[in-house]
């Protein structure tokens, strides 16, 4: 019996370890390649440990494009869209979860229906709208359209629905307004859900590519993912420098992940996102 248990444990851990290696391998390749000298990047079989740490790749990558500006923009846009989305999402989700108003169900289903339209389909009309508003090449266009999210509303609505209505009844007896109840009771009770929404938004904004590319022309308005394109050309890719830039780009996300991995994993489990 014990042997059976031990074998089961061994195979379980072996399978998990194999999965961990499979997931970490590309990441390992990215980091090690970022330190490889030019002759070791594309060798067959791959060189897993660089013969020397070629820090020059990082210097070259940093100087290949205005990455300092790209980093500032990525941080600013990601933080602003995250704050904006959290605020609008809390308000909308509360209304859908706890308030009764005319057409609530139709409105909610319509919102969900809108999620079926792929972003690419809306790109040209959005660009025309931004262009007519004179918003291209501005922070407004990188932030304002992204401070509301149907997915976030849906996620938080489900979360808010689990809060008992009796709390609202009790709060009313104490003369509490809807708004105060939301901020003093619902929000503190829904912290994990709100953090999940914020994390997904931050990562999404940090990685956004097509929107930034289409809506901006000035280097001063662009973000890191657009900057990574400078390492590719029609005849090849500067892999070592691309990996150095990618390593730098992924660092902030990694740091956030380390600090908030519990919420991240709960968020994935809660939302069903893979």
């Amino acid at each position: 019996m014990n042997l059976k248990k031990a074998l089961y444990k061994f195979f379980t851990y072996f399978a998990l370890l194999a999965l961990v290696v499979a997931v970490l391998l590309p990441f390992y390749w990215m980091v090690t390649t970022s330190f490889k000298p030019p002759g070791e990047v594309n060798v067959v079989p791959p060189k897993w440990i660089p013969s020397e740490l070629h820090w020059q790749n990082y210097v070259k990558a940093w100087n290949a494009a205005p990455f300092n500006r790209y980093f500032i923009n990525s941080f600013f846009v990601s933080i602003m869209t995250t704050i904006g989305e959290v605020l609008t999402t809390i308000l909308a989700a509360y209304a859908f979860a706890k308030m009764d108003f005319f057409g609530k169900r139709v409105l909610f289903l319509s919102l969900l229906g809108l999620m079926m339209f792929p972003g690419q389909l809306r790109l040209i009309p959005n660009f025309m709208l931004a262009s007519n508003l004179g918003w291209t090449d501005s922070y407004q266009i990188l932030i304002v359209p992204w401070i509301a999210s149907i997915f976030g509303i849906f996620l938080l609505r489900q979360y808010f629905k689990t809060i008992p209505d009796e709390l609202w009844d009790a709060a009313q007896l104490d003369g509490c307004s809807r708004f105060r109840f939301l901020w003093k009771v619902v929000v503190p009770l829904s912290k994990p859900g709100i953090i999940t929404v914020a994390l997904f938004k931050f990562v999404g904004s940090w990685n956004a590519f097509l929107w930034v590319l289409i809506m901006t022309n000035k280097p001063s308005m662009r973000t890191i993912p657009v900057g990574l394109a400078v390492f590719r050309s029609e005849a090849g890719t500067h892999f070592a420098e691309l990996m150095a830039a990618s390593t730098m780009a992924v660092l902030p996300i990694l740091i956030i992940f380390f600090f908030a991995q519990k919420q991240f994993i709960q968020g994935v489990a809660r939302s069903g996102i893979k």
Binding site: I124, F127, S131, L210, L213, I214, N217, V226, A229, S233
Partner: peptide
């Protein structure tokens, strides 16, 4: 405008607009 793929996307969108 980044790489050729990005340039092509930008031109397509801008032509439509």
């Amino acid at each position: 405008q980044g790489g050729y793929g990005e340039l092509s996307q930008k031109l397509t969108t801008s032509a439509a607009a």
